[in-house]
């Protein structure tokens, strides 16, 4: 048994050493921008009409990855629904009054912050995924404090319509501009709230989808699976 630990250590140290050495010699930390990065830094504002380059890459240049990403989240939800055994809801101890009253104040504020983050996702740091996590945390707090269960059916519907909306906007791009996820709406002025064509719309859909999906996952885990 001793040997196993020693071997594991040797493996780990070798791995870290070799990879760190070859990275540092060939891709030194803080090296110049790569070809791809230079292109994005120079052309993103002109091509997509939004100042947040990460958002531009996530939603526009590499939008297909993001569609895959929300599919992965859907898969997590499906997996949790499919795999978790259904158990009768156990009685949970009533939450502390501080939590019970605090939720009434905090809940709308968290939701508001989430909405702000998603709407300004193409201008400032943030966007659909971050906002989705924030909004889901509000619902998580709600479930924990009131030990109540949400109407998951409506979350599932929100999620499916938002996801299908994303995919269908992509398909619409094929007919409007000849390429999937083609940005067929007017781009507007840089730094404006209403700018960037389909980017903010897609990001809002992603926000809806992510928030409802994360809520579903957490709530299924708390309940112990779906009713069958």
């Amino acid at each position: 048994m001793r040997l196993k630990y020693i071997l594991a250590w040797i493996f780990v140290i070798l791995f870290v050493g070799v990879v760190a050495y070859s990275l540092q010699t060939e891709v030194p930390f803080g090296h110049d921008l790569t070809k791809l990065a230079k292109y994005y830094v120079d052309n993103t504002a002109r091509e997509t009409g939004i100042p947040n380059f990460v958002t531009a890459i996530v939603v526009s240049y590499r939008g297909f990855d993001t569609l895959g990403e929300v599919t992965v989240l859907l898969l997590a939800t499906l997996g949790v629904i499919g795999i978790l055994p259904w158990e009768k809801h156990k009685k949970v101890k009533k939450a502390h009054p501080v939590l019970l009253w605090g939720i009434r104040i905090v809940f709308p504020i968290i939701l508001l912050v989430g909405v702000y983050i998603v709407i300004h996702g193409h201008l400032t740091p943030g966007g659909g995924f971050q906002a989705g996590a924030v909004v889901a945390s509000a619902f998580l707090l709600y479930m924990v404090s009131l030990s109540a269960h949400l109407d998951l059916e409506s979350f599932a519907f929100t999620e499916s319509i938002a996801g299908a909306g994303f995919a269908l906007i992509g398909v619409a791009g094929i007919f409007a501009g000849g390429a999937f996820l083609y940005n067929f709406l007017p781009k507007g002025n840089l730094f404006d709230l209403f700018s960037g064509g389909i980017i903010p719309i897609v990001y809002i859909l992603i926000g809806l989808k992510v928030s409802s999906e994360l809520t579903e996952v957490v709530s299924h885990m708390m309940k112990g699976g779906a009713e069958q």
Binding site: L36, A37, V54, A56, R62, D65
Partner: peptide, 11 residues
């Protein structure tokens, strides 16, 4: 900085 890895990491 390079925006590509940031987008990849988000995914």
């Amino acid at each position: 900085v390079d925006p590509v890895p940031q987008a990849l990491v988000l995914t």
